[in-house]
Computed example of a mutant assay.
Amino acid sequence: MSKTRVAVNGYGVIGKRVADAVALQPDMELIGIADIVTDWRIQSAAGRFPLFASTDEARQAMLQAGLPVAGSLEDLLGQVDVIADTTPKHVAAENLPRYRAAGVKVVLQGGESHETTGHSFVAQANYESALGRDMTRVVSCNTTSIVRVLGALQDAGLLAKARGVLIRRATDPWESHLGGIMNTMVPESKIPSHQGPDAQTVLPGLDLVTIAAKGAHTQTHNHYWTLQLTRPASREEVLAALRTAPRIAFIRMADGLVALNSTIELMKDLGRPRGDMWEVAVWEDLVTVQGDEAYLTYQVYNEAIVVPETIDAIRALTETAPDAADSMKITDSTLGMRQDFLAENVSALRGDR
């Protein structure tokens, strides 16, 4: 079977991770990456992937910088089936006429609005509705985590409604020198914050309200949820629903994972590329159930969590995997995703698996 030919436009925080993930897939071929920059971000990709210039001005600048330019974005589009646009917020929407003219499938990211594509995507929730579409939008990092976790409890028949507080990181680590938030916290200007309505574009029946603030840190986001259950339940029932869901992994304060930075350090120690965490990390020992209410907290690594969703979106648009389970099995295996970071590591060392 021929491989799906994929391009990535925008080799930034998400784009470089998507490019690496595409290269790992047995049914995909990364044809090239496009961008407009000439600095270390694109120089690090030279020799790894064919480089294309997204604009005429960028092509001249790349050539002057000594970069090996394989062609224009239009040249790249003429060679692929799908393009994953991981350019900055709102740029992708401006690129859509170029993609339509080339007749390629398009995967956008959560910085664009739901209305831009008419479809928003999280693999475990609505893969089938994306089959054969011309385009879809992988929702944002926080929204992806909400759909994974709350969707798991909804699928188990346990969730009636959810109220969440999100503490968001202030900026990407590599941009922290440009500004950001120090010694304060900045509430978002409206309630609900945008993540709640965004999650409802994927799970329309989800009753949730989100409140968000930016904190003075650059490593990952942190969510706190108060959940109204459909009935009195046990803690084990809630944990079982989360264990059943894909792309959720447990961590424990009892193991010394007591803060966001400790989990990031664990990812590095596990040998994850760039220290990435594609899963939602739920603190197992903090999950609390009192009658028909549950409380939990989890961590979202925003640089990586949408990468597996982008890979699955490519398969859905091209109909190269018939359902979410088949696609996610391939994606999760190639990335080495887990359901329990430390327990699986110890089990593997003992030879249990």
Score class of each variant (00 low, 15 high):
Thr288Tyr: 10
Ala249Ile: 09
Thr218Gln: 13
Gly118Ser: 08
Glu112Val: 08
Ala46Gly: 10
Thr210Gly: 04
Val8Asp: 12
Ala249Cys: 08
Gly164Lys: 02
Leu108Cys: 11
His217Asn: 10
Thr331Ser: 15
Gly291Met: 08
Ile248Glu: 09
Ile181Val: 15
Thr184Trp: 01
Arg350Tyr: 13
Gly66Asn: 01
Asp75His: 02
Gly336Trp: 06
Leu178Ile: 07
Leu67Glu: 07
Leu131Ala: 14
Leu158Val: 14
Val106Pro: 03
Leu67Val: 04
Thr318Asn: 10
Asp27Val: 08
Ile264Asp: 10
His114Ala: 15
Lys89Thr: 14
Pro88Arg: 11
Arg272Glu: 13
Thr230Tyr: 01
Arg133Ile: 03
Leu270Pro: 05
Arg137Gln: 03
Glu175Gly: 08
Asp285Trp: 12
Gln228Ser: 13
Met267Gly: 02
Ala212Tyr: 03
Pro308Val: 07
Ala324Gln: 03
Val91Cys: 09
Arg338Leu: 06
Gln339His: 12
Asp276Ser: 12
Ala259Thr: 04
Ser189Asn: 12
Tyr301Pro: 02
Gln25Cys: 10
Asn142Met: 08
Pro187Cys: 14
Leu131Ile: 10
Gly47Ala: 09
Pro322Glu: 01
Glu309Val: 04
Leu260Asn: 13
Thr218Arg: 06
Lys105Trp: 08
Gly110Ser: 09
Ser347Val: 04
Glu293Val: 12
Ala92Arg: 01
Gln195Tyr: 07
Ala130Trp: 04
Val287Gln: 13
Arg17Gly: 14
Leu131Thr: 07
Glu237Ser: 10
Ile42Trp: 02
Thr297Phe: 00
